[in-house]
């Protein structure tokens, strides 16, 4: 199949970027979107042109590295999907595909489609840990956790930190990411020791990084590859209130 790619090219964080058009032939419907970009890069190498910079790691939808904006949506036209899980069969022969990097003040563009998501790491550093005894591994059934609670924690823990929530949010809010990390640990007994400090510290860092505030448009939960519910944000707000009153 033949596709016209319009891809954001930007030399570095200081330079001004622009969309560049590439006509690519020889693609197949079985190719993943990343493989199609690989194919394009191979052609650029042969033509002695600079290849397009984009991120990836696992290519199986669990690492959260491959986030790009495809045809006006985070990770392309489908809900709850990473870029590497998107295949060229989702497009038609002759289509034009616009590829842009995540756009948010807190995610500065490093080069082409690669953005700096270390703001997420700094939010994690502020409180996404627990105090635990070192030494031999604890007996796995020593702390009883009801199934419903374990499931809820797992649903939040599924966040892969891809940044699609920030990218798609009109306010570039990191509320879905931060709330998932907070609720994951705060709903488990192991997370109780730092319960209130965690909420305070992580939400503080979220604001400090310059992310906008959540206005519940619901775009994030649609684009989230793990379908993390926006209810997590409401729960974070409740935990924040609780931390203020009891913390």
């Amino acid at each position: 199949m033949k596709i016209t790619f319009k891809i954001w090219r930007q030399k570095n964080s200081d330079s001004k970027g622009t969309l560049k058009t590439y006509d690519v032939d020889g693609l197949t419907e079985d190719m993943s979107f990343l493989e199609a970009l690989d194919h394009l890069n191979e052609q650029l190498v042969l033509k002695n042109e600079e290849v397009i910079a984009y991120e990836y790691d696992c290519r199986e939808g669990i690492c959260g590295q491959c986030g790009v904006f495809i045809n006006g949506r985070a990770h392309g036209p489908h809900d709850h999907m990473t870029t590497c899980q998107l295949h060229m069969r989702s497009f038609k022969d002759g289509d034009t595909i616009v590829v842009e990097p995540w756009r948010a003040k807190s995610f500065p563009i490093i080069k082409d489609l690669i953005v700096d998501r270390s703001a997420f790491d700094r939010i994690i550093e502020e409180g996404a840990y627990i105090s635990s005894k070192t030494g031999t591994a604890p007996e796995s059934n020593a702390i009883p956790i009801p199934k419903a609670k374990a499931d809820k924690a797992m649903d939040a823990a599924a966040c892969i930190g891809c940044g699609a929530c920030v990218a798609t949010c009109k306010n570039s809010s990191a509320a879905l990411f931060t709330s998932a990390k907070i609720n994951h640990l705060n709903s488990l007994p192991q997370g109780k020791a730092e319960e209130h400090e965690r909420v305070e510290a992580m939400t503080w860092q979220m604001k400090e990084e310059g992310f906008g505030s959540c206005t519940f448009t619901g775009a994030c939960e649609v684009e989230c590859p793990e379908a993390i519910s926006i209810t997590n944000i409401a729960e974070m707000n409740a935990r924040k209130l609780k931390a203020k009153l009891l913390g």
Binding site: E100, R103, K105, S106, N171, S172, G212
Partner: peptide, 8 residues
């Protein structure tokens, strides 16, 4: 927080 909008 979102100084640059998406083209598409």
């Amino acid at each position: 927080a979102k100084p640059q909008k998406y083209i598409m």
